[in-house]
Every structure is written in C-alpha cells, then in structure tokens.
Design a protein around this nucleic acid. Structure first.
Length: 195
DNA sequence: CGGGGGATTACCT
DNA sequence: GGTAATCCCCCGA
C-alpha cells in the first residue's frame, strides 16, 4: 500500500473538495494490540467562513487549535463526556478548516475492533459513526495534532476512490445551523454509513 | 468560579 | 423516536 500524499496536491484543494477526495482511501491505526484499517465512506466539511457549526468559527482556542495547523494533521476532540471525534485538518494553515471522518468500512483487524467496541455488536455497527470509529480505532486526544503521514495513525491510497466511485452529498448530521448546506459526503449504497 | 452546551451513542418504549 | 449519560471546554461575571 502507498501512503496517501498529505501534501499540496491532495490538500491544496479547498476543504469541500478534500472531503470528497478522502472517500475511498484507507485509514490505518497501529497499536501494541495490532493493526486496524478501514475505507473512509462518510465525511463532513467544516469551513472557516460563514459556518457557525465549525469549531473554529469563533476564533482559535485551546480546544480547536489543531484546526489552525497545517493540512494533514489530526484534530481530535472529546464530546458528550464519552466520545471522541476525528478530523483531518485541511486548507491553508491558520484558516481553521477540517474534514470530520464520520464512518469507515472495516477492512483489517475486525477482531480487535470487536474487542474495543464490545463483542456483541454487529459488524456494521463497529465504525458507522464518528464516536464509534474512534473507539474501534483507539483514537483519543493523545493523537490530536498528529501528522497523518506517520504511524501510528495514517492514510493510505486506494485505487478505488472519488475518481471512480459514486458520491452523493447531504446536509450534515447533528448540525442545527446551515441545514441548507450539503457538506456531508458519502459513498453511494455503502453499507457502513452512520445512517 | 459556575453554568451551559456539544460535529454522539445506547437503550428504552 | 425519545432521552439519559457524562465531562471538558469556553464564556461571562
């Protein structure tokens, strides 16, 4: 497998385009317990301008500072007292934009994902949501600001990607503002979406 | 220093 | 489909 080039060729494009281009590629995570990987099947774009739902919309704080770093870094935050959400920082450094990874299709390390998620859960329930996939991939705030070109959390290229698969857009999930904006992107007919 | 709220999930009816 | 769980961050006083 080839590392996804997290450079200007890939992330030089704007965040809305990056959210679509990430679909189909692999997310990989290595720990002492082993490797897990999955295909990114659902993303959401969060923009710096005219987007109150974006954490960066009211300026830089300690919590959201990773969003203002260079593209290709991880932005991980803790929510609802229980869960984490994982984002890929996009756009020029200092702008404060990111792509939320909302769901992946499990590929490698399903046994490990089951262990982390609770053995009784169904395969399609392992990683079909931003909090779920962070559990299955053991992603927490220790990976905030992590460079996604490096282990233990990185992206890999897939020949099946946005250039040759069907993608559709919808309003974002759990976002009360900007419901008219179609900033959620999914692989059509994929069975591992959050809904 | 206290209160409100959140890019969610699991479990209930 | 409705809601409790749960805690860190941020803002205002």
């Amino acid at each position: 497998m080839k590392a996804l080039p997290v450079n200007k060729d890939f992330f030089g494009c704007d965040t809305v385009e990056a959210a679509q281009k990430l679909l189909g590629h692999y997310l990989c995570r290595e720990t002492d317990e082993g490797l897990v990987s999955g295909i990114i099947v659902e993303t959401e774009a969060y923009l710096s301008e005219n987007d109150p739902a974006c954490h960066a919309s009211r300026g830089r704080t300690k919590r959201n500072s990773a969003m203002f770093g260079p593209a290709g870094m991880a932005y991980v935050y803790f929510i609802y007292g229980s869960y984490h959400c994982f984002n890929v920082v996009t756009g020029p450094a200092g702008k404060g934009e990111a792509v939320l990874i909302r769901a992946v299709q499990p590929v490698e390390g399903l046994d490990l994902m089951f262990r982390r998620r609770g053995n009784k859960c169904a395969v399609k329930n392992l990683t079909s949501g931003p909090g779920k996939l962070c559990q299955a991939f053991a992603i927490d705030e220790s990976l905030n600001n992590h460079d996604l070109q490096r282990k233990p959390l990185y992206l890999e290229e897939n020949s099946m990607n946005s250039e040759n698969i069907a993608i559709k857009s919808t309003p974002r999930i759990g976002v009360s503002s900007a419901k008219n904006k179609y900033l959620r992107f999914v692989i059509v007919d994929n069975h591992y979406l959050s809904r």
